[in-house]
Design a protein around this nucleic acid. Sequence first.
DNA 1: GTCTATAAGGTGATAGAC
DNA 2: GTCTATCACCTTATAGAC
Lengths: 198, 198
Amino acid sequence: MTTEEQIVNAARKVFVRKGLQGAKMQEIADEAGINKALLHYYFRSKDKLFDHIFTEAFQQIIPSLRQSLNEKADIVIFIQFFVPFYLNFIQKNPYLPQFIMHELSQNPERIAGLAHAQNFPFDSLKVLIDKAIKEQQIRFVEPENLIINMLALTIFPFVARPMIEQIIFKGKQEAYENFMQKRADDIIQTILTSLRPI
Amino acid sequence: MTTEEQIVNAARKVFVRKGLQGAKMQEIADEAGINKALLHYYFRSKDKLFDHIFTEAFQQIIPSLRQSLNEKADIVIFIQFFVPFYLNFIQKNPYLPQFIMHELSQNPERIAGLAHAQNFPFDSLKVLIDKAIKEQQIRFVEPENLIINMLALTIFPFVARPMIEQIIFKGKQEAYENFMQKRADDIIQTILTSLRPI
DNA sequence: GTCTATAAGGTGATAGAC
DNA sequence: GTCTATCACCTTATAGAC
């Protein structure tokens, strides 16, 4: 592994966990097993290093769905595929949503510079949803609502984990983990039952 | 308004917006129209000032629902009451959820010290939900799922606003605001339709 | 490329006059 | 109670040796 890769890995770990302000160059250097000066040799400044990490993270969190959308041209099947897929991804990167949303909240203009923001195939999904409505497979919904609801149900439990664990599950970590293990099925059931034609 | 109140108001504004690390004592002093030394005179340290603000914010974000639960002992009516009520509260404090969740993510142990964490009447809600299931008013759901889903659908759009605005609504602020204006009805409809008996 | 040493500026906190 | 001045430390960034 090259030094640059070591730096990026260390920076990713520290930035995602602590944010731009909370992360310290010394901690990143320690994590990478090098000294601070080398960080500046590879990436001129903390801001530039952060930009690198944030851009990478942002592109990751927007799933590339083109393939699955071509193959499975049915919104119900798509939901059944997407929810466990995305849930599984976030399970492996549980701090990523909080990181992205916190930094975007601090500096919303940052998103404008990310060309890949347009990468999410919302328009393709819209077509699928409208088709399912027309065929009376599902009740009428605004496509925007359906997509946002799906994301909310998937992402929120990670971002709000401490509150959920403490207030809903009375501090029992095990209860939270048990809840999350069944989460994909619960989300799918919630969405699909809510979509049943009236 | 006393000096202490001015300080608390300024600190709330700055801390909620920028977090513990992002907030600077100088900025709080400027916001309050005083100097840094006075901050330390009233609150010994930045951490103590932050604790004050965070505790206050945390108690605010856990709605006191006892009254509404006594009067309206029906889970459907409760949902119809709670969603617009809570949505309206967050609309007035749009950065509060992000603030709480980010700081709890940085320091989850902090929640243990907040006795009022037990204030959320989850058990009362559980009774209502179980009763509605038994009477076949709604389909079977785990009470935990229903509560978490309701919170997720309500809170997520605020926390993820920059992403939603850019990716779903193509950067059109107006479209996001229009979406949020109808949000209460959309959430209620999503939840209640998903609860229809099978 | 990698290191040590250090500069330059910011930040929380205190001393002391009024 | 409120201010100015200042300390002590931390943090980013650079200089310069190897």
